Simulated assay, not measured.
Amino acid sequence: MNGSSLAIRQRSLGDPSIEFPLSPPLTRGCPRTSTDEIAYPVEVVYDYARLDKGLFDQAPGPDIGRWSPLLPPLEAPTLGEGGTPLLEFDGIYLKDESQNPTWSHKDRLNRVAISAALTEGAPGVVVASSGNHGASTAAYAARAGLPAIVLASAQSPAGVQAFVRAYGAQVYSVPVDERWPLLREIVDRLGYHPISNQTVTHTGHPYGPEGYKTIAYELFLQLGRVPAAVFAPTGYAELLFGTWKGFTELRLLGLAGATPRMFSCEPAAGGPNARALAEGTPAAIVELGASEAYGIAGSVGGHRGVLAVRDSGGEAVLVTDEEMRAAQRDLARQGVWQELSGAAGLAGYRKLRRDFDGPVVCIGTSSGFKDMGVGEEVFPVRAGLTVADLAP
């Protein structure tokens, strides 16, 4: 570890002048600014004046505990999250988050969120998730010795549901519209710590997105500078916001002179973040169409993504399943198999067709093993083959 946490309080994103003690985590958003229509998240505030900037002299590597002064208190043991590779493809970069312990970016969030459950003395944790988040929560809870309940979508791939169950969590496949009411009941009656959202628009866990700041720290060290633009697959926009906040801290600390423009890349079948930005609202709820990018396809947005895009001078980009598949195929041909949702960043960059004065980073969030239909296709055995039968 590199010192104790400098986290000192929570602050409303609806009104930054409103502050709360650091504990307990406000898992249902800001109680003073939220309404029946819009829920505002809170964020963690740090005593930056006490930070030893030598923290950024280290090389990036696994275990986000290396950044502990700029994270909430880390009580959960590591699984070696972070330190993921930055790969160059055709003049841009891919930050490959599929190289995390459970093969997705969610491990950074869960190291922090499970730590909060331990700090608060919770008897267990509960999460509603279609895949990556549930698997990561189950893994980090198991590592920390905490019981976990995962409310999985009945439509999520069978392989992903098996992946979640492998860590020993109690996993229940329930209809999507029943997950949040059941989660709230588990929190209220059993005292379990919620690792996912409970509110009308997304607030999620207040500490969790802080883990994504470490992506910004790593990119800064891997590139030797701040990128000009970052394209992130976006559902609830916790990844987008956390990465953006990490870059704003680097500027605040005087380590970087600029911040990148942040681009949210959502499935065209939904796009609540794009809707909120277009309409100038804090967050939006939209009707969701069909998409196989189930990891980021959602009808409910949150205020974090709006802040990250708006304050960075970025844009919201809507991408189709076909555009994501094309990006997924091209990455696979260069040795990286991303989940369809994980290819949304590259698809968004290609769709925007914009030149930038500096490096461009697309975040790839998860392994292709998590996709719909993976492992279901049966391939025939072909006996008696000779070289003449092989494709050139």
Rank of each mutant, 00 (worst) to 15 (best):
S5M: 05
A7V: 13
L13D: 02
P25I: 10
R28L: 01
C30G: 00
R32L: 15
S34W: 13
V42C: 10
V44L: 03
Y48D: 08
A49Q: 12
R50M: 02
Q58C: 09
I64L: 14
P69L: 06
L71M: 14
P73Q: 01
L79F: 03
E81R: 02
T84M: 04
T84V: 10
I92R: 13
I92S: 09
W103E: 11
D107K: 00
I114C: 04
S115T: 06
A117M: 05
A122H: 08
V125G: 00
V126N: 03
V127K: 01
H133A: 14
G134N: 07
A138Y: 07
A138S: 13
R143P: 02
P147N: 05
S156H: 09
P157I: 06
F163D: 06
V164A: 13
Q170Y: 11
V171M: 11
V171Q: 09
Y172T: 11
V176H: 15
P181Y: 06
G191P: 08
V200H: 03
K213V: 07
E218W: 14
G224W: 13
R225M: 12
A229M: 12
V230M: 10
P233G: 07
L239P: 00
A256D: 01
P260E: 04
A269H: 05
A269F: 05
N273M: 15
L288H: 01
A290K: 15
S291A: 00
Y294V: 07
I296V: 10
S299L: 04
G301A: 09
G302A: 08
G305P: 14
V306G: 00
L307M: 06
V309Y: 11
R310W: 10
S312K: 00
V319H: 06
D321Y: 08
R329T: 05
D330I: 00
A332K: 13
R333S: 13
A343W: 11
G345S: 04
L352Q: 02
F356H: 10
S366C: 14
V381A: 14
V381S: 07
R382G: 01
